[in-house]
């Protein structure tokens, strides 16, 4: 493709050096903490620390909650993204603002807002608690907190993906005899697939990494980020290393896997 070869051409144009220099500065700054942190990791024994009951529980809780929050965000968020990409309606701007709002809220505020909505002593919270499903200090509560802060990522990214799909492709599919839902599943989603997938990855990354909102909803049970905070308070930065490395590893594996899956689906 002509476009790709132009895009990937080596920097031959004048001023290219400046772009490289500026890029390197940021990359170095991003890399530095990682290197420093991994220095520390040599001094702590990671695997034994992770098998401690508290750490193992935190890993288990994170691996349970973040995927559930991601799936929920995708189930409800992808259709919303499609509606926003395809339809105009009264109050659309308001809906769009609402979708972005959780991104700009400080997570602690998001947590506080959630507590006023679904906290133990609220109507909703007590309703569920009375039926054996407490929404605070529970895995369900953690999922809700993660969903609140992470769902916008899949909505915003998938929306851009759907907007890039030519409407005529959907028209063609409809005229061939496919219902709107089947057209959405067979044509729109595969064609917007990369973007939808990117949105899902971002959502997962945010969900598994969320600290503030999760801590407000549930001091216990702990997820990896809240456990890391606890370790830090008792043992300083070094104590955070094992769980932090584990969190990094999980995120990295997920990102690489989805990139690989994305490449497979478009091969």
């Amino acid at each position: 493709m002509a476009g790709a070869s132009v895009g990937q051409r080596r920097f031959q144009w004048r001023g290219g050096g400046l772009f490289v220099l500026l890029s390197v500065v940021l990359l170095a700054y991003l890399l530095f903490p990682f290197l420093a942190f991994l220095q520390w990791s040599r001094r702590s024994s990671i695997l034994p620390a992770l098998s401690e009951p508290a750490a193992a529980d935190a890993i288990r809780h994170s691996l349970l909650t973040a995927p559930v929050a991601t799936v929920l965000a995708a189930i409800f968020g992808v259709p919303l993204a499609y509606v926003l990409a395809r339809h105009s309606f009264r109050g659309k701007r308001l809906v769009e603002a609402l979708v972005v709002l959780p991104l700009v809220l400080p997570p602690v505020v998001a947590g506080a807002m959630l507590l006023t909505g679904i906290g133990q002593f609220t109507t909703v919270g007590s309703f569920f608690a009375a039926r054996g499903l407490p929404l605070t200090s529970s895995l369900a509560g953690i999922v809700l907190a993660q969903l609140f802060v992470a769902a916008p990522f899949v909505v915003i990214t998938a929306r851009a993906g759907f907007a890039s799909v030519d409407r005529r492709l959907e028209y063609a599919s409809r005229s061939m005899g496919y219902s709107p839902v089947r057209t959405f599943l067979h044509v729109s989603v595969p064609l917007a697939g990369k973007m939808v997938l990117a949105g899902v990855v971002l959502t997962f990354a945010r969900a598994i990494g969320e600290f503030g909102a999760v801590l407000m909803i549930a001091n216990n049970p702990r997820t990896m980020p809240t456990q890391i905070w606890f370790e830090f308070q008792t043992g300083g930065p070094v104590a955070t290393v094992p769980l932090a490395v584990a969190l990094l590893a999980i995120s990295l594996v997920v990102i690489l896997l989805t990139q690989y899956a994305g490449r497979l689906s478009t091969a």
């Binding site: 005529r168 028209y171 063609a172 005229s175 005899g177 089947r182 044509v187 595969p190 689906s265």
Partner: peptide, 30 residues
């Protein structure tokens, strides 16, 4: 979807994620 019409658009409206044959097969699908 219930009108039984075939439509060809200005410029391309092929499904890029399907082969030529799959495009035709998709249309025959329902």
């Amino acid at each position: 979807e219930d009108r039984s019409l075939g439509i060809v658009f200005q410029q391309d409206a092929l499904f890029e994620h399907m082969t030529a044959r799959e495009n035709v097969a998709y249309a025959l699908g329902p």
